[in-house]
Design a binder for these strands. Structure first.
Ligand SMILES: [Mn+2]
Ligand SMILES: [Mn+2]
Ligand SMILES: [Zn+2]
Ligand SMILES: [Zn+2]
Lengths: 135, 135
DNA sequence: ACTAAAAATGCAACAGTGTTGCAAGTAAGT
DNA sequence: ACTTACTTGCAACACTGTTGCATTTTTAGT
């Protein structure tokens, strides 16, 4: 589904910046930092970008994929809603290229995590991404 | 071991702010935010606090326990060194009181995580802490 | 297509945090 | 006590998070 369809599906108004953010994230292999989003969407005010990220995040269209030292990365969600973000994957920050990727985890690990009595669980890791250190 | 002994053990110079930071973290049940540390250690310059947290973190005496929306929380480390931070626990942000705690995880989960090919892994969760919602 | 209500945007403004350079002060070994 | 390497305080700057408010845009109803 394209970005406009996604917005309609989530009952969100179709605005330029929302489409632009969703498009940017959809086209990117890894997650995009707030700084990169800002420079790619330089035609919009950064407050609007800030509020757009909040809205898309609140409704489960995107999620914060990584955060450290004031750097935030965002990525598209798959199967999330405004009820809950279900992130059955981890966020890898590549020590080499600095990129951030969403990485699938094993079924076993998913089951282990599901047993924890918490509303939301996020795993982040540091290491080499598949591009920088091919398997 | 007290804070002075800890610094000696890690071959770090014994300075007022390092002792004060270690003492503050040692006495606290949960992790302390940067903001709280700053107001408790108001007698020191915030740049010095910033560099102190970096130094203690780099050498494995403390770790960043949680980070979101520009808020960082710090906690004492147990068994870490400048070679590696071994965090076999997760960081819980209480949705109720806002506090951050280090929570032990099961042996099984530890084993699962150990199999992942990454240098460093951090788990953070949101939910109710034991104080706000007793078992 | 027209209109009104609801929602989103742009702009200004402010606080907090991360970060660095540099001069002055301090800790630790001799 | 002396020396040296390390640490601190201060200034300074960039970036992010956050809010209020006037203006513009979207969308639903006619
Ligand atoms: Mn992700
Ligand atoms: Mn911890
Ligand atoms: Zn990489
Ligand atoms: Zn609590």
């Amino acid at each position: 589904m394209n970005s406009e369809g996604t917005l309609r599906h989530f009952n969100l108004r179709k605005t330029k910046i929302r489409i632009a953010v969703l498009d940017a994230l959809a086209q990117s292999v890894g997650a995009l930092s707030y700084a990169v989003l800002q420079e790619r969407l330089i035609e919009f005010d950064r407050t609007t970008l800030y509020r757009t990220l909040l809205t898309l995040s609140d409704h489960g269209l995107i999620h914060k994929a990584y955060e450290e030292n004031g750097e935030s990365y965002y990525a598209r969600c798959f199967g999330c809603s405004d009820q809950a973000h279900n992130h059955e994957h981890l966020h890898l920050k590549c020590s080499s290229c600095g990129g951030v990727e969403c990485i699938e985890i094993s079924e076993q690990l998913k089951r282990n995590l599901a047993q924890l009595p918490f509303q939301e669980i996020n795993i982040s890791a540091k290491g080499s991404c598949s591009t920088c250190e091919p398997v």
